[in-house]
């Protein structure tokens, strides 16, 4: 499957622009000068070993962490300069899928999806909320689980519900943190397919944080390799790994491609 044919990308419109981004935790420097653009309609997979700062990067993009240095422009707004109200307004335009789904344990699937909607959109009728929940669950193909509790769901189902919870607010950008981690190969393939469907259906631009090469290959229009706090190489998946660089080769050989 050639991912390039799936979706039209506007390479003139950047939805995320990162310039000279640095982040350290104490003495440990995690990001050491990231420069990157995500274009409208594009899926970019960020690959890297565990602990290289992949999740830190997307947490900075959504304002969960503050950078030490550098500029992060998301949908035309400088994230660090936003006050709480404007940051919340920006966050409504971004969907964040957590590595462990982060579903609210005390709520069933319906309430998990309805919660962000009813908290952010006032004066919705019950019917409108029901419709929005059903539409989001339909998009991830798991509508029959609507009244189940998170503890009753499998890992793959939890991932789908986590994605549905972000889709209910109709985001323009999706940030996926390790969408296939801890899943079996069959479920991983289904999640990869879902990421592509979300891109098509909701016209989103996405950053997919992963160390799963299959996920990167099947979901991304471009792939970026994060090594030693910097993007070592950015490009089409096949081009990125068509290299003689020993570090990249090592990373590539370590992983298994289906």
């Amino acid at each position: 499957m050639d991912k390039q044919k799936l979706h039209s990308i506007n390479y003139n419109e950047s939805v995320i622009s990162i310039n000279g981004l640095y982040k350290a935790f104490g003495d440990l420097e995690v990001l050491k000068g990231i420069d990157f653009n995500l274009f409208k309609g594009e899926n970019v997979a960020v690959l890297g070993k565990s602990g290289t700062g992949k999740s830190v990067l997307i947490k900075i993009l959504i304002g969960l962490l503050k950078p030490d240095k550098g500029e992060v422009i998301v949908l035309g707004k400088n994230v660090e300069e936003l006050d709480r109200k404007n940051l919340d307004a920006l966050r409504l335009r971004i969907g964040f899928s957590f590595q462990n789904s982060a579903l609210y344990d005390s709520m069933d699937v319906y309430q998990n999806l309805a919660f962000p909607l009813t908290m952010n959109v006032k004066n919705l009728s019950r019917k409108e909320v029901d419709n929005a929940v059903e539409e989001a669950l339909d998009a991830v193909g798991i509508i029959d689980k609507i009244h189940e509790m998170p503890s009753e769901l499998s890992g793959g189902q939890r991932k789908r519900i986590g994605i549905a919870r972000t889709l209910i607010l109709k985001p323009e950008i999706m940030l996926y943190d390790e969408p296939t981690s801890g899943l079996d190969p069959v479920t991983s393939t289904e999640i990869n397919k879902l990421i592509n469907e979300v891109q098509e259906l909701y016209n989103t631009s996405s950053i997919i944080i992963t160390h799963d090469l299959t996920c990167a290959k099947n979901t991304s229009n471009r792939t970026a390799i994060l090594l030693d706090g910097r993007f070592m190489k950015v490009g089409r998946f096949d081009d990125v790994f068509d290299t003689d660089d020993a570090q990249l080769k090592g990373f590539f050989n370590y992983n298994f491609i289906q």
């Binding site: 969960l64 709480r84 982060a102 609210y104």
Partner: peptide, 9 residues
């Protein structure tokens, strides 16, 4: 964090 990114304080 999930609440935070959903614009809920």
């Amino acid at each position: 964090d999930a609440m935070e990114v959903s614009a809920i304080n």
